[in-house]
């Protein structure tokens, strides 16, 4: 019984990978664009460090900041789970949700598997090689222990991203169109989660608030752990906070999706 359930999700996983690899050139260019994304920032920060003659800014050496910015690109591939909200909205708007809800596969779990396959594809072909190159080029000290902590952190990145995206998606049962909300969320989360620059560059009062919120687990925490800007001693406490947030978000997502299902009117407009 358990195996049959697993094989259903495995089929979904395989299907999504086939879809992704069928548009190979698009996948390649998406990867290239993603990898080039931090280049302008890297050049700009290099100019800032050179002009000011700084050894470090907000605890980051120039090499450390370059590593942080490039690894952000790798982590970005994990945060694409925000697609879940878009997919839920689309299915609610078109009425396709009615068809999906009658299938013997959990709709939300199916969405997560779908998103996981895309995430794993891009993270494996673009993210991991990029992280390896950054480690080699910048000479970062990375131990097996750091890799273990990083693996836990990126699992939390995917989980928290997927949960927040599900919560947003569930709102489409209550609000006619949530595309503006999803877009606002995607942009804001990068700013307050360390996806534009490290949170340590914010004034300390703002930093205090941002370090208590779950958004840091999307960018700042995994990046900080692998680049060594979050010390190994602090990492466990930070990850524990992430697990607590994942728990809270799971409860919210389950309650909200349960309530959303009751409200769904699939008219297909």
């Amino acid at each position: 019984m358990h195996n049959r359930t697993l094989s259903k999700y495995w089929l979904l996983f395989e299907y999504e990978i086939k879809q992704l690899t069928s548009y190979r050139m698009d996948a390649v260019m998406t990867i290239v664009t993603t990898l080039l994304y931090p280049l302008a920032l890297v050049i700009m920060w290099t100019a800032v460090y050179t002009f000011g003659g700084y050894d470090s800014i907000s605890g980051f050496s120039l090499n450390g900041l370059i590593a942080y910015l490039f690894i952000l690109s790798a982590i970005n591939t994990l945060v694409w789970s925000s697609e879940i909200a878009w997919m839920i909205q689309w299915d609610v708007k078109t009425g396709d949700i009615a068809m999906f809800l009658t299938r013997p596969v959990s709709y939300i779990k199916g969405m997560v598997v779908d998103s996981l396959s895309e995430t794993l594809f891009y993270f494996t072909v673009a993210g991991i090689p990029l992280i390896a190159i950054v480690i080699l080029v910048t000479g970062m000290h990375v131990t097996l222990y750091t890799i273990l902590l990083f693996a836990i952190a990126i699992s939390l990145t995917f989980l928290i991203g997927a949960l927040m995206s599900t919560i947003l998606g569930a709102l489409s049962a209550f609000i006619t169109d949530i595309s503006g909300i999803i877009s606002t969320y995607s942009w804001a989360v990068a700013l307050v989660g360390g996806g534009v620059f490290p949170l340590s560059m914010f004034p300390s009062s703002v930093q205090g608030i941002l370090l208590a919120l779950p958004f840091q687990f999307l960018f700042y925490v995994p990046d900080g752990i692998i680049t060594g800007n979050i010390s190994l001693a602090m990492a466990w406490g930070t990850l524990a906070l992430g697990i607590v947030w994942a728990g809270i978000l799971t409860v919210i997502a389950v309650l909200l999706w349960g309530s959303a299902k009751k409200r769904l009117d699939a008219v297909g407009v």
């Binding site: 609000i175 006619t176 169109d177 949530i178 595309s179 503006g180 909300i181 877009s183 606002t184 942009w187 804001a188 700013l191 534009v196 620059f197």
Partner: peptide, 22 residues
């Protein structure tokens, strides 16, 4: 779609705000 429009207005305003913060 007024709700959508208002939420998109917030979204669009984030671009200049991000520049200012940056």
């Amino acid at each position: 779609y007024r709700q959508q429009f208002i939420s998109y207005l917030f979204y669009a305003m984030l671009a200049p705000l991000t520049t200012l913060v940056f």
